[in-house]
Design a protein around this nucleic acid. Structure first.
Lengths: 308, 308
DNA sequence: TTGTATGCGTTATCAA
DNA sequence: TTGATAACGCATACAA
């Protein structure tokens, strides 16, 4: 289709000419059109120092007329800040948790006029290192690890003078970290359900007693503890048949860089069938008591012992 | 927990001191330790111009010793390039299509040592404009719109001399665009299924004849056309009962900025139940013939007319 | 109240 | 074969 190819070529050329012809407006340009010096323009823009009212008028008119936009790179070079935060993500696909976190990070940064440079490592520690290296070259002002993989990579950033924060699954307690409070969250979920009048509530999760990963074990202990504690606090019975343990979800994201088919295969392979039916049970009257995470975790252990 | 708070405070302080004490190594530092000028170091780094072998040795040693890392911002100021591409996304959550695109964009950019600055607009044209403005201030080298919302925002970027590309759902034919070839994709899917021996294949999609959005209509026409064409090419019968029209998925992402509950409500509300049963049908012998998109779309129209 | 001059870290030109 | 220097666009200390 020669006509179509021509249009495409034309599109490229138009943009190329645009890009080559146009030079971004600088402070100097504004100063020239306003008939003042660059520092006067700077004073107007930053609203510091004294500027005569009429001079200000002229400068503002010139700013309007030229369509000046600050060059963040140049400002960054001068102020020794890039106004960029690096975000290293363990995986976005297919886990929407990471997507939600990156959305939140981006929105929050935007309010402070910061940009987010995302770097997806697909679970690969070596890529994580490469990401840190790139961020150092770009002089990012901070690095967020969601979630961190190797301590050495955190240290690498720190040695370059870049502050870091670990989001979930911290690999060290010696650096900033932000973790989900699973206990409070699970209590809130339970309170919500009980508040709606439900009394036969099931728990689906991994078995803390047989979980090797310490982080996962901790998380599951908190959740299960909250579940048991809240039930008891409301005078509801604990029914072992309503607790389904099992690895319901697991993915090694390194194996799935955009390959949807292998992903689907693997999901089918590792997801076990439901391991028991939830039997119907007569509801029991409510109640309310103080609930504490420590007590909840302890109760989880007492209730099920080391082995289930 | 005073002990825990102390550790957190300590973490902050350690990082603060790190950040304040450390100054990034510059070319000048390397030059000083190597006992040469900055331009000699630059020549070694960029492998252009002539450098005496021993001088090179010294410089390389100094580079190693100091741990020099180029300052991309400074280079960008000088070379009038930011080595950053802006990526405006209509939505990432809950649509994994956008996530996949942004992953691909990022990987590809990385190979060319480019960074990706993502800007999520949640379907809001005004945010799209703000995104373009931010990208102009940061002097990004190009902007990708996945997917574009307003033509004026594309024009805004172009006027600032920044090349743009529209990914799917182009709002104009006059600027670069990259679109999915739905016809070829659907043919491939059909060939795959037929190749596996399947002969009773259903089509689920929207009705092109009653679709108001021109883009969606075009997409559905291509897909349905490919479906019909491929069936016929293989000598398989077209069974109207195997074609299910209906709006199976729709989301106005502006309404769901992280509110999972309302999202779930809406999904349940707009997703209709399956509109017919797929009846069993006897398979019919195969065959193979040439297939063309235009013919496919025409066949779709002939087969079902304006109204179905 | 305004302007001049310097430096941020690079690249590139030109002279030595 | 190497070094001095200007320029990129901005912020700021200081001079006028």
């Amino acid at each position: 289709m020669p006509h179509r190819n021509f249009r495409i070529l034309q599109g490229y050329l138009v943009q190329l000419v645009h890009a080559l012809m146009s030079r971004a407006v600088t402070l100097k340009d504004v100063a020239r059109t306003a008939g003042v010096s660059v520092s006067t323009v700077a004073r107007v823009i930053h609203k510091n120092g004294y500027v005569a009212p009429e001079t200000r008028k002229q400068v503002e008119a010139a700013l309007e007329q030229t369509g000046y936009r600050i060059n963040v790179l140049a400002r960054g070079l001068r102020k020794q800040r890039s106004y960029v935060i690096g975000h290293i993500l363990k995986a976005t696909f297919p886990n929407l948790f990471y997507v939600q976190v990156s959305l939140g990070v981006e929105q929050c940064a935007r309010e402070k006029d910061y940009g987010i440079l995302a770097y997806n490592i697909q679970g690969d520690p070596e890529r994580e290192r490469l990401g840190v290296e790139m961020f150092i070259r770009r002089r990012v002002d901070a690095i967020i690890f969601t979630t961190p993989t190797e301590l050495s990579n955190l240290q690498l950033a720190l040695d370059a003078g870049i502050p870091v924060v670990q989001v979930e699954r911290p690999v060290t307690a010696d650096m900033n970290r932000l973790v989900v409070d699973n206990y409070t969250g699970a209590v809130a979920a339970m309170e919500h359900l009980i508040g709606l009048g439900h009394q036969r509530i099931a728990f689906i999760g991994q078995d803390p007693a047989s979980e090797a990963n310490p982080h996962v074990r901790y998380v599951e202990e908190q959740r299960l503890g909250a579940y048991l504690e809240t039930l008891t606090a409301h005078g509801l019975p604990v029914d072992r048949d309503l607790i389904a343990f099992g690895r319901h979800y697991f993915l090694d994201v390194r194996r799935y860089s955009g390959d949807g088919r292998r992903l689907a295969d693997h999901l089918l392979e590792v997801t076990p069938p439901p391991n028991r039916h939830f039997r119907h049970r007569r509801p029991v009257g409510g109640g309310r008591a103080a609930i504490h995470p420590r007590a909840g975790a302890a109760r989880a252990r007492r209730h099920f012992g080391r082995r289930l």
